[in-house]
């Protein structure tokens, strides 16, 4: 969502998870469809390239699910596919609409240990870097292996081992750099932010969804 409509990250994390849980519990098709529409609606508020990135994943996952479940029965294949699509889309909207540092801040709010957040943080930072490094090394290997290279697999393990050792050294230095700038292994909670009108609206919608879950459950029984 736009910078303007920034919703408090703690609320976002809580309600995203609650939505996923309700979806998983629900056996009512009407409720699942309502959530699907709500998800599509929120998705439509995002930027085009973000929508594209999110849909790429959720459509692929749902298609896969649908094909896998096709031979079973119609209930499973349709219901589970819709649930999978909605869940994956909802989850993917979270990182696309919230800054990573806000999400780690929200984790801290839920009392997740610092060591977990730290490892998470470092892993995220290194995935991109390691991926790029690995790619470069593979290119270098390709360039050097003219014709048939029987030891390719041997070289691959060398690449991976090298990468590991190198990145461990780099990450240690990164940790020293963090220490030099006053980090001592403790994450800080998010700055206390006042709840805005948008936050309240967001809360109302999600409380509405929870009520709907129980209400629909009742009429069906």
């Amino acid at each position: 969502m736009n910078q303007k409509y920034q919703i408090h990250p703690v609320l976002k994390v809580i309600f995203t998870f609650s939505l996923v849980i309700l979806l998983s519990f629900s056996h009512n098709f009407a409720f699942v469809m309502t959530i699907l529409v709500y998800t599509l609606f929120s998705l439509s508020l995002m930027k085009g390239n973000q929508i594209l990135a999110i849909l790429k994943i959720s459509l692929w996952v749902s298609l896969f699910t649908f094909i896998i479940l096709l031979p079973s029965n119609k209930y499973s294949s349709v219901m589970i596919t819709v649930k999978v699509f909605t869940t994956v889309t909802t989850i993917n909207m979270l990182p696309h609409s919230t800054k990573w540092s806000s999400i780690t801040g929200a984790f801290k709010f839920f009392n997740i240990p610092d060591i977990f957040i730290l490892v998470l943080d470092i892993a995220i930072k290194y995935i991109v870097m390691l991926g790029n490094h690995a790619l470069q090394l593979i290119w270098a290997l390709k360039l050097r292996s003219i014709g048939k290279n029987r030891d390719k697999y041997q070289s691959l393990s060398g690449i991976a081992g090298n990468l590991f050792i190198k990145s461990v050294e780099m990450s240690k230095e990164m940790y020293s750099a963090m220490e030099c700038r006053g980090f001592n292994g403790k994450y800080i909670t998010l700055e206390k932010k006042r709840l805005s009108m948008v936050d309240l609206l967001y809360m109302l919608i999600h409380i509405g969804i929870v009520i709907l879950f129980f209400y629909i459950g009742k009429i069906v029984e």
Partner: peptide, 13 residues
């Protein structure tokens, strides 16, 4: 401290 390798020093988004 400004490190020799800037990459290791820059770790934020």
């Amino acid at each position: 401290f400004v490190f020799q390798n800037s990459d290791t020093q820059l770790f934020c988004a």
